[in-house]
Simulated assay, not measured.
Amino acid sequence: MALDNKDDTDFVKFWNTVLEPKFTKYRHILQGGLSRHSAAVIPNLPLGEGMSVLDVGCGWGDMSLQVAEIVGSNGRVVGIDCVDAFLEEGRKDAAEKGLRNVTFARGDAEVALPENEFDYVVARFGTMFFTNPVAALRRMRLALKPGGQMTHIVWRRREDNPAWQKAKDITLRHLPAPGADADSCGPGPFSMGNQETTGLMMKSAGYEDVTFTRVDEKILVGRNPEECIAFALAIGPGGEVFREAGEEMAEAKRPEIESEMHGYFESQEVDDDGIWAPTSSWVISARNPG
């Protein structure tokens, strides 16, 4: 399951060099927002004492730790991710919590996964970035024992996720769209937003009993408009447009972009914690035939 760094794909290299520092800087926003979706899902999954669970694209591992507490000391959880810094944080947090039934390993579901080993596979907002989604989803299925189950959480359509999409809409009014050869984190956050298309992917990957459940949650996008803007121009669809425009062009347009974004974020729900914007996800569950 472990990857040799010298064999990293361009996708993995991009995550470890370009995206990781930005994601780490805004971990408090990203992890807090993503966890609102998994918190609405994990307690309702058929997870139990003694089960073995694989968490694909585990990031900083907060969901892996939550699942580890559910399966107990007789169970085990393996979190895999291709970003070294994320895994180190997961190991630190597991040690602080005294959880010995969870391990974190460097891996890429598009390259290799163990086979016929787990009772359940979970993934939170990672499968949308697969370059070859059907092949990777099939690897996830083959990691399951016969009859094992999987659940992954993905963003719905871009129009259902203004927390992410609005920043891109604003940025595109001032900067050109990235070219087809632009460096990116993969197909994009909304690549599995269409229920019919993603259902066909799941069936092509060999799953049975595929179900979709919608989850709507507002997430914190920053403690104030300035942080919201900095976050939006660093990460996500808006950040990709800003980055790929090149520093000279992007910085020349920054005042206009920031002014328009400021107005948008000020119009959203505000409380003592910060600014909240709407997001919407699909919770997709399925079974490995057996």
Rank of each mutant, 00 (worst) to 15 (best):
M1H: 10
N5M: 12
K6L: 12
D8V: 04
T9K: 06
D10F: 11
F11T: 10
F11S: 11
R27K: 14
H28I: 03
L30K: 01
L34F: 13
R36S: 14
A40P: 10
A40D: 10
V41A: 11
P43Y: 02
G48W: 01
G48R: 13
E49G: 04
V53H: 02
C58A: 07
M63K: 04
L65H: 03
I70S: 02
I70R: 11
V71M: 06
G72D: 06
R76E: 13
G79Y: 00
I80H: 05
D84H: 14
A94E: 00
L99R: 10
R100W: 00
R100Y: 00
V102D: 01
F104M: 07
A105N: 09
A105I: 12
D108T: 08
A109T: 04
L113S: 00
P114R: 03
E117T: 14
F118G: 04
D119Q: 00
Y120G: 00
V121F: 05
P133W: 09
A135S: 15
A136K: 02
R141C: 02
L142Y: 03
L144C: 08
K145I: 10
G147Y: 06
W164H: 14
Q165S: 15
Q165D: 14
A167S: 15
I170D: 05
D181H: 10
D181S: 12
G186P: 01
P187V: 00
G188W: 04
G188L: 09
P189I: 02
F190A: 09
T198W: 01
M202Q: 11
M202A: 13
Y207M: 09
E208P: 01
V210D: 03
T211D: 12
T211G: 12
T211W: 05
F212S: 06
V215I: 15
D216A: 14
N224R: 09
E226N: 12
L233H: 04
I235N: 12
P237H: 07
E244S: 14
E244V: 12
A245D: 08
E247P: 01
E248S: 12
A250N: 05
K253R: 13
G263L: 08
F265D: 03
F265P: 02
Q268N: 11
Q268R: 15
E269A: 14
V270G: 01
V270S: 11
D272Y: 00
I275P: 07
I275M: 02
W276E: 04
W276H: 09
S281R: 08
W282M: 04
A286N: 03
N288R: 15
P289A: 12
